[in-house]
């Protein structure tokens, strides 16, 4: 038996919106400690990770570990039937064939219930080792989304250069080229404002990435004020969005390399 309650449906809506463009179907692994998901896009270029801890839910029960295969488009459609501040409960019995999702209004005078069919999904999973990143950029997620949008008007690939001075995003295309530099601030405090950027660096590092994937990652911006971009030479770049007090979404993106 699985039962999980979130006080606001908007959070679950944002989580599903953040990953459904990248993966159409995914296995949700429920255990005593919470919910985990690992999924790759069809081209195996981007890897999405979701972790939601049990203590982030207002109620959480998982009698034994269970994997639920869910079509994310269907999940998203059902979640659109919830008001943002509805309480949402998800429930599945052992060996269930569907996931029960119910919404209760804040006044508790309206309760709706939907069932989404579960499916067997055969997916490739990978082991991601702990890595010592050479550079970590911490910046506003809104700023990240804006840069991705701006760069996409020019090119298809983006180069991220992290140095002690800051982080530079650049692109080029048929129409021309462009770059945006965010200068490093030593401390992110109120004076600097929430839009400031910090770069923790051991060694300068540069990566070229396909912009269309970053546009998908930027869909997680409504979940978190900040995004961290973790870079290491010859390894996928990791983008992390923290989900308030309950977990995170991480995206790993395989780089483009010079032949």
């Amino acid at each position: 038996m699985i039962e999980a309650v979130l006080p606001q449906a908007s959070l679950l809506k944002k989580i599903i919106e953040a990953i459904k463009e990248l993966v159409s179907e995914a296995n949700f692994d429920f255990s005593e400690t919470g919910i985990r998901l690992q999924a790759m896009d069809k081209s195996h270029i981007a890897l999405s990770f979701l972790h939601l801890r049990n203590d982030g839910f207002s109620e959480y029960r998982c009698d034994r570990s269970q994997t639920l295969g869910i079509n994310l488009e269907s999940f998203s459609k059902v979640l659109k039937c919830a008001a943002n501040d509805d309480q949402v409960q998800i429930k599945a019995t052992d060996k269930a064939e569907s996931l029960s999702i119910s919404f209760e209004s804040t006044a508790k005078d309206r309760v709706s219930e939907f069932n989404v069919k579960l499916m067997d999904i055969d997916i490739d999973s990978v082991d991601v080792p702990d890595m010592d990143y050479q550079a970590t950029v911490n910046m506003s997620s809104q700023e990240f989304a804006r840069i991705v949008r701006d760069m996409m008007t020019i090119g298809e690939a983006i180069t991220i250069d992290a140095t002690k001075q800051g982080v530079k995003f650049s692109t080029s295309g048929d129409a021309g080229e462009g770059n945006i530099l965010l200068r490093h601030r030593k401390t992110i405090d109120e004076e600097d404002g929430p839009s400031s950027t910090s770069v923790e660096i051991n060694e300068p590092v540069s990566h070229s990435l396909a912009l269309k994937f970053l546009a998908n990652f930027a869909k997680a911006a409504p979940l978190a004020d900040r995004v961290s971009i973790n870079l290491i030479e010859d390894a996928p770049v990791m983008f992390e969005f923290k989900i308030s007090d309950m977990g995170h979404i991480r995206f790993y993106l395989a780089p483009q390399i010079e032949e």
Partner: peptide
Amino acid sequence: ARTQTSIFSFFSTP
């Protein structure tokens, strides 16, 4: 020219 790598080039399957 740049070539797109895959996640499998870096992370192995369990």
